[in-house]
Design a protein around this nucleic acid. Structure first.
Lengths: 210, 210
DNA sequence: ACCCTCCTACGTACGCCGTACGTCGCAGGG
DNA sequence: CCCTGCGACGTACGGCGTACGTAGGAGGGT
């Protein structure tokens, strides 16, 4: 193992953790396994990282920091909000196995504020400021968090929240559901994301009129 | 231990699991501990439950089934949607330590369809049917899932997604955030939930006009 | 009355886990 | 030359889920 010659570093350890998380999910991460992957003794990791929880935090921050900057070629605030939402979605889709972990964890302040600031700028363009802008941003975050949880944590092997409609349920008790059973069993995540996003934007526009 | 005389039952085991989850969270659940709590041998549990994952599923379903029916005294579809959203929120707040688990798990079909059917009924009242109603319901679910994740998984000891703004970040790089720093550090979950909910309803109303 | 079957309870053991602690070897400075 | 300090590592403890084997009792058939 060539890598076993390199000295152990916090960076190398976090790297390995991120790779492992992306490949097999957080629950696959263990100190022993990580050490083995690095060709090192288990306890050597503790010279660089105080414990597993911190290590996972560091991995989460590293993934968060990967968020790509993006450029929008438009003056319409709607396009900026759309671009921002798509960027968040892209991050979630690049790291499906890490998303729940990220969503459940306290954001690192730096990356958090970068995102918040962008959100506030976009709402500012739409004419929303101060308290109300914060409320709207939070509603947007909630929507994004929710859809992406549904999209990304939905694939069966990740253990998701999807409904699996055809499991011996007596549908006669649920007439309206029965009518749209096909829709309920189908997921077009692109389309759903777009639909919900436009719904949110429509809501903002409505507030703009007052 | 008086309870150790009772015969072991699936129901008794699931009950104990639910209690433990509510008291200390899913991660505190272990077969050994559960058995000890029931005054039984660890392996005896396996006569009633195939493995821990299924046991946790059963506990999740049991909690889900606790959802209280509610009555709305109004003809306005908005009030029905509000009531439904509040019911979901109440469930989440009654089981904060279980919510992330519930949100991450495949819903039991029965309870799932009950909720879906109510959602579809409410949207039907507003004049939305078929595919578009499904889309709207999913957007609502996303919003609810998101806000409630933020609300319920936010308390520090549960390891949440809240921002904690005052941690040596150079705010001069984030002027808009700096302006509303107080807002960002404050959480009024009642108010935020209501605000986001009205935002969603406003969006639906807008679609109604077309 | 007998036995046979089946179900439940339980003990043991294996292979994982996180990590406290102690030791060893080596690099650097005096 | 030795001393100090630090990184790497082995061992060990107490936890975990669960495969497997056994023992005991309850119920039914004869």
């Amino acid at each position: 193992m060539s890598s076993s010659r390199e000295p152990l570093t916090r960076a190398r350890i976090v790297d390995a953790a991120v790779r492992l998380i992306e490949r097999e999910g957080v629950e696959a991460v263990s100190m022993r396994r990580l050490a083995a992957e690095l060709g090192a003794g288990t306890m050597s990791l503790y010279n660089h990282v105080p414990n597993k929880a911190v290590l996972v935090d560091l991995a989460a921050e590293r993934i968060m920091a990967e968020a790509r900057p993006y450029h929008v070629d438009s003056d319409d605030w709607r396009d900026h909000i759309r671009a921002h939402a798509h960027a968040v979605r892209a991050l979630a889709r690049q790291h499906p196995r890490a998303f729940v972990m990220l969503a459940t964890r306290r954001l690192s302040s730096e990356a958090g504020f970068r995102t918040i600031e962008i959100g506030l700028m976009n709402l500012d363009k739409a004419g929303f400021r101060g308290k109300i802008a914060v409320g709207m941003m939070r509603a947007m975050v909630s929507y994004l968090l929710g859809t992406l949880m549904r999209e990304v944590a939905t694939s069966p092997e990740l253990g998701g929240i999807a409904l699996s409609p055809y499991e011996g349920v007596d549908m006669s008790a649920f007439p309206l559901s029965a009518e749209v059973l096909d829709e309920l069993g189908t997921y077009d995540h692109d389309h759903e994301f777009e639909f919900g996003l436009e719904l949110m934007i429509a809501a903002l526009e409505r507030y703009q009129e007052d």
